[in-house]
Design a binder for these strands. Sequence first.
DNA 1: CGATCGTTTGAGTTTGATCAAATGTGGTGG
DNA 2: CCACCACATTTGATCAAACTCAAACGATCG
Lengths: 258, 258
Amino acid sequence: MGQPHGLGMDALFRRLQLYGPLEPDERRGLEAAFAGVRTVEANHDLIAEGARPAFVGVLLDGLLCRYKVLPGGERQIVALPTPGDMFDLQGLVLRRMDHSIGAVARSTVAFATLQAAHELMDAHPRLTALFWRDAVVECSILREWVVNCGRRTAYARMAHLFCELSARLAAGGLGKGGAYPLPLTQADLADALGLSVVHVNRTLQQLRAERLVAFKGRRLSILDRAGLIAAGGFRADYLHVAEPMEGDPPKAGKEGDS
Amino acid sequence: MGQPHGLGMDALFRRLQLYGPLEPDERRGLEAAFAGVRTVEANHDLIAEGARPAFVGVLLDGLLCRYKVLPGGERQIVALPTPGDMFDLQGLVLRRMDHSIGAVARSTVAFATLQAAHELMDAHPRLTALFWRDAVVECSILREWVVNCGRRTAYARMAHLFCELSARLAAGGLGKGGAYPLPLTQADLADALGLSVVHVNRTLQQLRAERLVAFKGRRLSILDRAGLIAAGGFRADYLHVAEPMEGDPPKAGKEGDS
DNA sequence: CGATCGTTTGAGTTTGATCAAATGTGGTGG
DNA sequence: CCACCACATTTGATCAAACTCAAACGATCG
């Protein structure tokens, strides 16, 4: 059981280290706490709205979605956690889920009991701040989603989502080279963007016609990064990933070139 | 300078105590840290996108908005902090604002320097958890805003917003009796709901025609609470305010009757 | 008493939704 | 290998929600 966690855990470490380097024993503490590993099949829930969360998780591989369902049956996806993202952190602090978390594609997650997580934070108080930071960045992303659904056209909205996922995956060390796995159906995409399936299909065709992206075989390829960024009006600042450590200059070429 | 803070600070205490009672010295620490008080005129920014936050604030009185502006000039309001809400907490953890915070109406805020806030948390580690909780609840609200903009009609969307504000103000001890101050213009409302001004006007007329609300003189009166809740498909759970302390039964009548 | 800002109304247009059906595709079992 | 099924994508036609443009109306304030 030497290496049960893989890329996802690396992505988590990378994320947490944006704020400051992790001590070796913080790292060990994290790995020890997130000892359990579980696989979830596509379209199965990890936890449903109304439940009392019992675990804190890290997505190691795959793709999750947070979503809510309205009385009329309409679904809105409110977040798409990618490998390295923690989820259910709010379980440490709130007692009831106000939304569900499901697996978009078969996923593997590492999890810690609430108790283990609390002990971890007691032992390494700085981790509390890092988890807090995580929640704050999640807020930033959600704000951008509000903007996306509220004020952008379907075309820009979709382009923006593709840019965001690309940037987030790249920040986690995945999806290099202008293409990344994106196991969403068009119906999922519709629920994430607040559109109908039909309109998603047509918008996608438009993005393809403009030669901005290709979307085949559960994979998204970005053919024209600059064009896609322009189409979506995308600016990566709200992701807070390229944040320079203290005062060093932002390194160019991180997001701009394919 | 015996009582510089007023209702807003009470609302903050009430909020923080949802998680557990505040120690007297935590309370004193908070009041000492948030020693500065400032007034902001309507339509003036407290802090603009791109700035480095220097303070943490609590809204004491008035109404703020967090917003983003798109390249084309469209504005989307992504949150409406009410008295008792902390803001710029992310300044403790992120270096750049990715959105602006402005005053919708003349407001008074208490603020603490980042240093004072950090010292406060060092002295009272439990406050860190409470601030974290605050960020987590903010996330919940933002998720609901995504749902609102993504999947609800203009009519339901507006009804939902009115319900949310009513519930949040009531939780802070304000806006009793089915009416509360709401100093938003229809243009502000449009920016909060992702609609055009004209459509806001017509939707508002519809809500009035259905005798659900009255909106006159910077005040919103809820004429038919049950009807408004039904129209907006509103469920208060995501606000995490009525959360019972440990395991005691939810008290009825908190939200249901006028 | 203008000036300014916010609200309201009307007319016409557009974006995106809905309904219905056809076409593709991947997987399963015979 | 083929037939079949379930599911996803695509297309066409129609409809409705919400937007835009333009102008009038109403408050509020110096």
